[in-house]
């Protein structure tokens, strides 16, 4: 199982932010930190297949597969293996968490017969009670996005600022969940709170104007 960036160059809103980034990641928990506007979210968006790099390739080798899937040559196949939680907070008009997740489950290809059970399972996994989304707190919205990303049991999990808005108890729960998931998945996490997760990460990369660098092994 491997995610490979090869010479990825990308811009966002007209500004160039990534230049020739090459990276290869196997299963585990990988942190990405760095100043705002230097390409953290852009890199994650490229990996999530929603922002097309100007040049370069993003490829995923899923578990038990022999061939890599390119994010842009074969977008449907690539997204089967993908779960993504964006940085922006989920803001939905009147709907409940359960209904929204059931809808996304359908979009992600979960079999109709398995849907109710799967939705209940991911909600339990992130400790999210059902309720009206407009009334959710920041932490609950973060967990809803995480639950959505887990619906299709993806090999590649991409989380942008999942720590934001979480109180210390919620942070502990997130930590343990990520460690559990990272056992046999590639988990990319961008965060402004590296100290919250560095203790359990397998690797830590910083993205600055100079490029992507691996930080020495976390303590």
């Amino acid at each position: 199982m491997r995610l490979t960036f090869k010479d990825v160059t990308a811009s966002y809103n007209g500004r160039p932010v990534l230049a020739g980034v090459s990276l290869s990641l196997g299963p585990g928990l990988w942190l990405f930190t760095g100043p705002n506007g230097c390409g953290k979210s852009t890199l994650l968006r490229c990996a999530a297949g929603i922002l097309r790099p100007r040049s370069g390739r993003v490829r995923l080798l899923p578990r038990d597969a022999r061939e890599e899937i390119d994010a842009w040559d074969d977008p449907t196949a690539y997204r089967w293996h993908l779960g993504y939680a964006p940085q922006e907070l989920l803001d939905l008009p009147e709907t409940t968490a359960g209904r929204y997740l059931a809808y996304l489950a359908a979009l992600k290809g979960v079999r109709p017969a398995c849907r109710p059970e799967r939705v209940a399972a991911v909600m339990a996994q992130v400790s999210l009670p059902d309720g009206e989304v407009p009334a959710f707190s920041t932490g609950q919205r973060r967990r809803l996005a995480l639950a959505a990303a887990l619906l299709n049991d993806p090999d590649l999990l991409i989380l942008d600022e999942p720590t934001q808005g979480l109180d210390p108890d919620e942070l502990v729960r997130l930590r343990l969940l990520l460690v559990e998931l990272a056992a046999d998945r590639i988990v990319l996490v961008a965060t402004h709170l590296p100290e919250a997760l560095s203790g359990c990460a397998d690797g830590h990369y910083t993205i600055t104007a100079e490029g992507v660098n691996r930080v020495g092994d976390p303590a």
Binding site: V172, R175, L176
Partner: peptide
């Protein structure tokens, strides 16, 4: 062990 212990951090 998760059920029985209060685990606050973990590393593989």
């Amino acid at each position: 062990l998760r059920g029985g212990l209060r685990i606050v951090g973990a590393r593989r």
